[in-house]
Amino acid sequence: MRGRRLARGAAGVAGFMIIAEVAGRTGLIDPSVVPYMSTVLVEAVRLPADPQFAEGLGKTLMIWGTSLLISLLVAVPLGLLLGSLPRADLAARPLVEFLRPIPSIALVPLVTLVVPFVDTIKIIVVVFAATWPLLINTMYGLREVDPVAKETLRSFGFGRMSVLARVSLPSTAPFVMTGLRLASSVAFIVTVSTELLSGGISGIGVFMITAGASLRTDLIMAAILWTGALGLVANALLVGLQRQAFRWHAMKAVGG
């Protein structure tokens, strides 16, 4: 079942690449504008050996990971706090609803003026973007905690903090995980975007700008392939982790 799905997906990707290749070879697409797919693939395979790309890849992963970790450390405690204190929630809600739709990239000019370090600028902007899905999902998960489960523990004489630690937190964890998946893809998109916008010494986005300056469309496309693959792998890893760690959540939803 899973193998077949994987095979179908691979066939789809291969089919697309063959069409792109044929379109180039038959002159449908001018190869001087868009390189052959085969050329892009060869470049993509070669890229990790390119020291500039390898360093950029490491830097992008570093910004992405650091930002995601900071978002997790900020958003989850904040979500738990707002979720368990209705008054604080009411006070914070207008602010949250105002800040949330602001495109994080729009912060780049401001942060650039205030913060002198390019990596820090990027991290601040990415954290801003990745915090929302985590915060909202944590708050939502906390609201979804079953009151019967909480009352069960309370009836045994457990206090508020114990109920929070032993019922509310484990019950909210799968929602935090969903938030983390959403935050991860947002953080990756914004990381590469800040690199394109703010530049810096290295990064996948910086590599693309450099390649663009020397009109290397093939290199740009190879780097794009890498970003797509990275996003795919990160999501697959998180989905796997979610399935493993929160099997109970899926099973309960089925009504076992």
Partner: peptide, 21 residues
């Protein structure tokens, strides 16, 4: 408040038991 020396068995066992342990 809670007497601390009692136990309650609820009707809704599926919600009263903790599915994560």
């Amino acid at each position: 408040g809670t007497p601390g020396d009692l136990a309650v068995v609820f009707q809704d066992y599926s919600r009263s038991l903790f599915p994560w342990v």
